[in-house]
Design a binder for these strands. Structure first.
Lengths: 204, 204
DNA sequence: CGATTTCAAGACCGATCGGTTCATATTTCG
DNA sequence: CGAAATATGAACCGATCGGTCTTGAAATCG
């Protein structure tokens, strides 16, 4: 005979807050201020958690930061999976992908910057957990861009002499550089024009 | 009758350390660790100054950081002035400029990153002094690249349809993006190949 | 009910932060 | 020499850091 509920239910008061929502709020803080400049009170205010609850749920500041970073990366990946949908036109995908960067690079979004780029510059080389995440994200992004470029080349939509894999590396550098320059000059019109001119060099 | 020395000489013990050398050592520390992660003891160790001397000479941590940032920017500007020498071939200048980025992006240099990019991501938007410096540097760099591209275009060395001013914006984004990606993957061969492929899109 | 668990609030911890001050030694000057 | 300036190193400052612990209320179970 099988027990009806082989998994033991917790006995006491159930958790009353949404862990994932707390991670998202914490992500917002790290995103705006960076890792070192974010203090515990900032996180408590944003998550509306008490010190005790936050530590019980996430361990420590560094672990919470990694959760936030993972969340940021997951969001970026699902966005790319939509933009680079293999059923759609690859050039349309590239345009959508770049349009997203223009958007995230304009006005307040631009001034806020990119958590990934900021983390890479602040912590990479001194934090192995961060290193792994940033490195694998850039590789994944490059692979998706390269795949789109390959499909575009097969369809004869690439300019002469464009090689998908090296063009993908160029494109990744370009968009991450956009994020850097956009921190001080988040001008939508210029970003858009720059992206358009960039794409003109690669698309037939 | 004129006094022989109208400028008053200081009476006591003269300064015994080189201010500019101290700024350079401080720059190295900020460069490696970032602003927030750099503590006073780090700066004292690097400059070999006592707390008192450092504060007497530079005021506070923030002022010293600005001096270090100014030094970094000045170095970058003089480098560009050499690379983009108006007497030389503009395409050679662009190649030299990009070769410098490949070099600074490889191995230990790459892992160290770029003080300007790191500062932009860490402090821009929250520190007006930093904002001004970063913004004007990017503008100055873009102007120099645009000038070189203009000269190249006049000499018929640019690919069809390349417009110097927008290409300059693209190039600036590209090299700054290189610095970001190079933090986790400072591979000389790949950087070099990426730069070469990039230039192929713009140079005839 | 009583056991159990989670909650918020805040006291508390040692360490470190950026910054000031002080005592003392040293080096230049008139 | 004695005044003036700079050097060092350590003591000291209040504030804040990340992190732990306690308290007492609230919520859920058997």
């Amino acid at each position: 005979m099988r027990r009806p509920t082989p998994v033991q239910l917790p006995r006491g008061r159930p958790r009353s807050f949404d862990t994932e929502a707390a991670v998202e709020r914490a992500m917002d803080v790290f995103w705006s201020r960076g890792y070192h400049a974010t203090a515990l009170p900032d996180l408590l205010r944003a998550t509306k958690l008490s010190r005790g609850s936050l530590y019980a749920a996430f361990g420590d500041k560094h672990s919470l930061f990694l959760r936030a970073l993972d969340r940021y990366i997951a969001d970026a990946m699902t966005r790319m999976d939509i933009e680079f949908d293999p059923c759609g036109d690859p050039v349309d995908g590239l345009r959508a992908y770049l349009a997203g960067y223009v958007d995230r690079n304009s006005g307040a979004n631009g001034r806020r910057g990119c958590l990934l780029v900021a983390t890479a510059m602040e912590l990479a080389g001194r934090d192995v957990d961060v290193d792994r995440r940033i490195g694998s994200f850039f590789k994944a992004m490059e692979a998706r861009v390269a795949a789109a470029l390959s499909r575009a080349k097969a369809a004869g939509q690439l300019a002469d002499g464009v090689e998908p894999s090296s063009a993908a590396r160029i494109l990744v550098c370009f968009v991450e550089g956009l994020r850097v320059v956009g921190k001080t000059a988040p001008t939508r019109i210029i970003s858009q024009a720059t992206v358009d001119a960039f794409l003109d060099r690669f698309i037939r």
